[in-house]
């Protein structure tokens, strides 16, 4: 299995990674040997085998409850916002192109 540079560019778009040409080329090359190596699992006989899933340790769902944090914790969370408008998180507009 080999992927082309165009296919890697499409994956980068899906993964929201803005990669320059030279990085796309490097990754395309790396993918060749990695995919060849991991492809060996397709030769394993998996007839009738169910995919492994982690046995659930908990008793189903817990109530979706908000829990209070102290003021210091709240301030730490707010301080990590890349951009703040008062106590609100500022984010780029979804439908507009910002003025540079």
């Amino acid at each position: 299995m080999k992927l082309s540079k165009e296919e890697i560019a499409h994956l980068a778009k899906l993964a929201r990674l803005d990669l320059p040409e030279e990085k796309l080329e490097k990754i395309t090359k790396d993918f060749g040997s990695i995919l060849e190596y991991v492809g060996r699992i397709q030769k394993v006989d998996i007839q009738g085998i169910e995919p492994f899933t982690m046995p659930a340790k908990s008793e189903g769902w817990r109530p979706d409850e908000a829990f209070e944090v102290d003021e210091a914790t709240r301030e730490l969370i707010l301080a990590n916002f890349p951009e703040r408008a008062g106590d609100l998180l500022a984010a780029p507009g979804v439908f507009e192109t910002p003025k540079k």
């Binding site: 890349p82 984010a91 780029p92 507009g93 507009e96 192109t97 910002p98 540079k100």
Partner: peptide, 14 residues
Amino acid sequence: DGMRYGLRKQGLPL
């Protein structure tokens, strides 16, 4: 994703 914490490049479309 640059929204709630971590690095955000500013002044760009979403």
